[in-house]
Design a binder for these strands. Structure first.
Lengths: 79, 79
DNA sequence: TCTTGACTTGTCAAATATGACAAGTATGAA
DNA sequence: TTCATACTTGTCATATTTGACAAGTCAAGA
């Protein structure tokens, strides 16, 4: 699986969960004590940036889901 | 949960799985088609670096586990 | 149309992840 | 002790993430 695909799937996970919970990006930022920016959330959701694990962790906190849930990418069959 | 704790847990996950599978860090690098370095694997396992999701994905590929498994951090009770 | 809210995108500066290499540490075997 | 293997750590250059801000897009209402 290509880098861009991985980033896209992670971003879709985040966006899907966020919408399911009825949050806006601004809501998320408000829920995170550590600083984070809607610009970055947007970029991550769109798969335009290769986020660090800590940033994803902060987002998972705001979404109230385990980090592993937003990192749920199908295990590739072939490398 | 502090940033350093998150990084440490992810690193421990990787190291634990790697040892369970009997791989050395050099083995891992050899299994990953995309370029990655033992220096970086070591730093990630030690929690000294805030790895990007794509790097963790590459490691998960080499370890033959889902990305979500190495990202398994207990959901924090309190923010 | 105009406005508002939500999101996207461009740019910038600062911080830092990454790959590469060298050197150091630790362990175990001969 | 010596050697080999595995890992850690320091440093460097490069690339990129991140937060911040501004501006742009888009859809839904009034």
């Amino acid at each position: 699986m290509k880098k861009s695909e991985v980033l896209k799937i992670v971003g879709q996970n985040i966006k899907r969960i966020r919408l399911e919970k009825g949050f806006t990006q601004v809501d998320l930022v408000g829920k995170i004590e550590a600083r984070i920016d809607t610009t970055n959330i947007s970029r991550i959701e769109k798969g335009r940036t290769n986020a660090t694990i800590h940033t994803l962790y902060k987002i998972s906190q705001a979404l109230e889901v385990p980090l592993s849930e937003i990192c749920s990418v199908n295990i590739s069959k072939k490398v």
